[in-house]
Write a protein that binds this DNA or RNA. Structure first.
Lengths: 223, 223
DNA sequence: CCCATAACTGTACGACGTACATGGGGGTGA
DNA sequence: TCACCCCCATGTACGTCGTACAGTTATGGG
């Protein structure tokens, strides 16, 4: 086993482990994030991880917290509530988009992290300003956050992200399969096939669906 | 190893395996669904599974397909597009709600299943009737389905569903933690704490957020 | 009766998370 | 200077997982 390499010389640390775990997840997917693998990357025995984390789950907790802490909340201003909410959701999405493999971790862990509580507080506050009662704000807010995580997770393939070449090929295959469906039964699937296998522009896709969510809030208040 | 028990006497079959896998997932979570465990339940060697499924992933494909096939699509009528769409989304949610541990599987596999294509076709058709272009319909439709799956997944705890007693305790603890936060910093979180740890009424929660989604569609068309 | 095929068994391998006991080395107080 | 302690890491082992590969039985058509 190679002794501590350059990048990680000196003692191990919680933070260093988390950083390399994030990189690993980005590069090869969440399944590649393994106690043994991380230990190896740090030139250390697997059991050394257990000094810094109780178990694998608390490592994942750490990853989720790391992710959530990256959210750059905009300063509270005097913009309309829905506009400020939109900015927060944008910021949240922007923070997790670079790490689709990890986004799913955040789902159940937002309220466990300090920074997650802050996000929740802001979102709930704005919803209440928008006229929602506390309980409704909680339910809608939960759904908003979960939906945005879903948006980010949705374009993560499990396992290692394929190389450009084979990714192209897989997408072509998938599209071809959809387009060779019986045209009588699936006209709309066929027409939408190009957009179903991959969206033209991710930014547009995200912004479209954020519009949908925030716009939907107004409908709820009227109802 | 107990020889074939009563319930599963005779030959193994793809369908029988899937059915028991669904039951197992419902009872103890997706992690309990194991080649070895399923084999054991059928009084059979683990490797026997590989006659009926190429590998574990295709078993999961089977589970997802099983789930999607349970969706009871309403007959196409002459109701307004948004109303019919809502009915379809309701039907979809109703089908996956009983199996929260499996719902996540459906996310990436809808377009792989025959019945999933049918759902997609209906949804896309209605969205186009609602004035969306094919590409937009694809993006919005994808998001709708994913969001609904998220709704169902959200109230699944990973691992075995805890007994009523310890579940109650866990919820009490979580709520207490939120309510003992500094009231100056987190007034809204505290006010919403009861609804954050568990919603008053799941039906209301689901219907509220489906309203949000379908209502949001109208906003998109105007914009 | 023969034998191809379908269905299943047996054994083995390399991963995984982690319990438990052990060891060392650097900073601190004597 | 030395002894001590405790942080940090090691070493070994166990039980689990998915599954590759080869061998065995049951079934039914020629």
């Amino acid at each position: 086993m190679a002794k501590r390499n350059e990048a990680t010389r000196g003692r191990l640390s919680r933070e260093a482990i988390i950083v390399s775990a994030v990189a690993l997840a980005d590069a090869e997917g969440l399944d590649a994030v393994t106690i043994r693998r991380l230990a190896q990357e740090h030139g250390v025995t697997p059991m050394a991880m257990y000094w810094h984390f109780n178990d694998k789950d608390s490592l994942l907790d750490g990853l989720a917290e790391h992710l959530i802490e990256a959210v750059q909340l905009p300063e509270p201003g005097d913009a309309p509530w829905d506009q400020e909410l939109r900015e927060i959701l944008d910021a949240f999405l922007a923070a997790i988009r670079p790490h689709p493999a990890l986004a799913g971790l955040a789902m159940r862990r937002i309220l466990a992290a300090e920074s997650g509580l802050l996000i929740a507080e802001r979102v709930l506050g704005l919803l209440r300003r928008g006229g929602f009662a506390p309980a409704q704000a909680a339910e809608v807010g939960t759904f908003l956050i979960c939906s945005i995580i879903t948006l980010a997770v949705a374009d993560a393939v499990p396992g290692p992200p394929p190389t450009g070449e084979e990714r192209e090929q897989a997408l072509r295959d998938k599209r071809a399969r959809l387009e060779s469906l019986p045209p009588g039964r699936y006209p709309n699937v066929i027409a939408a096939a190009p957009a179903l296998v991959v969206c033209r522009d991710e930014d547009d896709y995200f912004s479209l669906n954020l519009d949908l969510l925030v716009g939907g809030l107004h409908g709820l208040r009227r109802g």
